[in-house]
Amino acid sequence: MGKEIERSGIPVVVMCNLIDVAKTVGSNRMVQTVSVPYPLGDPEMSPEDEWALRKHRVAIALDSLTDEIQEPKVYPTKL
């Protein structure tokens, strides 16, 4: 579905835990999430740290939408 949306000129970013699967289905922009049951969180973190983690990952995803890409890219997510 993301490929069809991109064909119409709208950039798409896939946020997922399984980057290899995203590559296999042809995603162009990929952001690694934390885990399958908690894609943008970690229940073992303090609420403040978890909020910072979520905000950081979403910011990376939003920034990736402005990039002109020639080949699939996985964006780094280190804090």
Rank of each mutant, 00 (worst) to 15 (best):
K78A: 12
D42G: 08
L40P: 02
T66S: 14
E6Y: 05
H56Y: 08
S8Y: 14
V14A: 01
E44S: 13
M1L: 10
D49E: 15
L40K: 07
K73V: 05
V25W: 07
I10H: 04
P39L: 01
V12N: 05
D49P: 06
N28A: 07
T77Y: 06
Q32W: 10
L40H: 04
M15C: 09
V13T: 04
G41Y: 00
M15N: 01
C16P: 02
I60G: 06
D67V: 04
G9T: 12
K78L: 09
I69K: 07
W51K: 15
L53G: 04
V21D: 15
L40D: 02
Q70F: 06
K23N: 09
N17M: 12
R29Y: 05
R57G: 03
V31L: 10
L79W: 14
I10Q: 12
R7H: 14
W51G: 15
Q70G: 09
G9C: 11
N28D: 11
R29F: 06
C16A: 10
E4H: 13
M30P: 01
D63V: 07
L62N: 07
I10A: 13
K73Q: 08
V13A: 04
G26K: 03
D67M: 12
S64A: 12
Q70P: 02
D20P: 01
E71V: 07
E6A: 14
K23T: 09
V21S: 13
D67F: 07
E48G: 08
E50H: 14
M30V: 03
H56R: 10
E68P: 03
P39S: 05
V34A: 09
V13G: 00
T77W: 06
K78N: 12
S27G: 00
D20A: 12
S46Q: 09
M30C: 03
K78G: 14
S27W: 00
R29W: 02
R54V: 04
T66F: 14
N28G: 05
Q70R: 03
K23F: 02
V34T: 04
T66L: 10
R7K: 12
A61L: 05
P39N: 07
P37S: 14
E44M: 13
V36K: 13
S35T: 13
I69Y: 06
D49W: 03
G2T: 05
S35P: 06
I19N: 05
D63K: 13
I19S: 05
K23P: 00
M30E: 00
G2W: 02
R7C: 13
Y38P: 00
V14Y: 01
R7A: 15
E50G: 11
L65G: 01
E71L: 07
T33C: 09
C16H: 08
L40E: 02
P76C: 12
I69P: 00
D42C: 08
G2V: 05
P47K: 06
E6V: 10
I10Y: 14
S35C: 13
